[in-house]
Design a protein around this nucleic acid. Structure first.
Ligand SMILES: [Zn+2]
Ligand SMILES: [Zn+2]
Ligand SMILES: [Zn+2]
Ligand SMILES: [Zn+2]
Lengths: 157, 157
DNA sequence: GCAGCAGTGCAATGTTATAACATTGCGATT
DNA sequence: AATCGCAATGTTATAACATTGCACTGCTGC
């Protein structure tokens, strides 16, 4: 019994089960297709394009077509389990905090390697929300996209 | 001689001339096509889609094709005269501050009316940059996109 | 003259996303 | 059991967005 280091697979399965429970608690259901898409996103932390996703889905579901993947993605995004990075038409699994906290998350998109980092900083988000409110706006989207060079790319120019 | 209220046309022309000068000072040239695209963006503060822009350009330049508009847009964006809102594939003229100040600007995109507001708040941007730096990242993009309900849409639900 | 280069015209293609309609599966109602 | 209602999925086609590649023009410096 290895309490020390559960395998990556087990971690993923655990996460998926957790997501499934979370969906059920909201009256939604994480069906096999949706679960598969989420699993693929989890395995690719840098994000995936819709059509890459489609190719991979086809391995399991040969009949899959664009709507298959877009519908799954819409669902996952609605449920706060995934995000879209508008800037690069990239989809990423939520790194978990931002749909639990009510606060929106910061999305750091590296222009060099296209890596996406989800960052939580309530102080900054608070200041941001206050500034918007002062201008008459109301923060709404759970996703704030920011272009920022990631640590790895900063180190290796 | 009306020193009181210059016509909107005159304002636009003035702005375009200024942009042209600014390009020249950098060794670039705001050609007729580019100037036309910028003028169209200025006349549509809510932003325009590339193909809408294309239709309008065709009024003047019947031979225009997608590359015509994308090339002009790339140029304007490089020169800091326009921005792309990745979220909605929308292009907007820069409301002038953000390429003059070195600081990036905040882009408030209203999910209800699709309106785009460019906001400058150095305090917030400073806090943001500091927070990113603490996480090892370096703010780079001049465009930070934020979903936020605009004042008009807040008033009229 | 004539290379070299920025800008443009044009056709084809690639990529991303949605519309529209048919079908399946499953629990609730009769 | 038969029917209905509904969510999810399958299927086909198309809309919407963006890029590539090549040819041609009109300059500027040699
Ligand atoms: Zn998230
Ligand atoms: Zn990077
Ligand atoms: Zn700007
Ligand atoms: Zn609005």
């Amino acid at each position: 019994m290895n309490t020390a280091a559960p395998s990556p697979d087990a971690v993923e399965t655990g996460f998926l089960d957790q997501a499934e429970a979370s969906c059920r608690s909201r009256g939604a259901s994480l069906t096999p297709i949706r679960r598969l898409v989420l699993a693929l996103l989890l395995r690719h932390p840098r994000g995936l394009k819709a059509y890459d996703l489609l190719e991979r889905i086809k391995a399991d579901k040969p009949g899959a077509s664009p709507p298959t993947v877009y519908r799954a993605l819409d669902f996952l995004i609605e449920q706060g389990l995934a995000h879209k990075v508008g800037r690069m038409n990239l989809f990423v699994a939520c790194s978990q905090h931002c749909h639990q906290a009510q606060m929106p998350g910061l999305f750091l998109v590296c222009p060099r390697c296209n890596g996406v980092t989800e960052l939580q900083d309530d102080a900054v988000m608070g200041a941001l929300a206050a500034s918007l409110a002062a201008a008459g706006h109301q923060l709404e989207s759970p996703e704030v996209e920011i272009g920022a060079v990631c640590p790895a790319c900063r180190a290796a120019p």
